[in-house]
């Protein structure tokens, strides 16, 4: 492998690493989540205050109670939906941050290997960076793809020019 090809690959990896590290701010969703949680808490308080607040004067007592219960049920359902969206998004957010952290580690290792075969990573080393079964399955699917043996026209596949992956 010519040195300049390896050097170009290291530079490309360094740039990719920089992009990933810079994307951390875009992943910061704490402010948005905070608004959702405050919304959920406010809905709970509104539901708790309904008995006094939601009594239209022209409504008969039986209807009044039914209306109040219906409004409380709607508010409770809304709070539940907000909590659910919030928790699911928090988990997705966490999952993508973990994937991003794994990619950063992988790029750092590739850069450190710097073309040295003894220090470079094997494809199996990637398994240690995964945080879910989904990622391991994607790894297996990727290795099964026929295109992997020749991803570029006239290329050398996974261990082609400039790759520190063995």
């Amino acid at each position: 492998m010519p040195d300049h090809a390896g050097g170009a690959a290291r530079r490309a990896e360094a740039v990719l690493l920089c992009h990933l590290e810079n994307s951390t701010a875009s992943f910061d969703g704490v402010a948005a989540f905070d608004i959702l949680w405050r919304t959920s808490s406010l809905i709970s308080k509104l539901a708790a205050g309904l008995p006094e607040a939601a009594t239209p004067p022209a409504v008969a007592p039986g209807q009044e109670e039914a209306q109040r219960l219906s409004q409380m049920t709607q508010l409770e359902a809304l709070r539940h939906d907000v909590d659910q969206i919030c928790m699911l998004h928090a988990q997705r957010h966490d999952y993508f941050l973990q994937i991003k952290s794994g990619l950063e580690k992988m790029l750092r290792l590739l850069i450190m290997a710097d073309g040295d075969d003894a220090a470079s990573m094997t494809v199996d080393d990637l398994l240690g960076l995964y945080v879910s079964e989904d990622q391991r399955q994607a790894h297996a699917r990727a290795l099964d793809r026929p295109s992997l043996s020749s991803p570029w026209p006239g290329g050398q596949g996974e261990a082609g020019a400039g790759s520190a992956l063995r």
Partner: peptide
């Protein structure tokens, strides 16, 4: 226990509620 601030906040919100 979770290293994700959003997860910790989310779980705390649900459990406190």
């Amino acid at each position: 226990l979770d290293d994700s601030a959003t997860m910790v906040m989310s779980l705390a919100h649900i459990l406190k509620g």
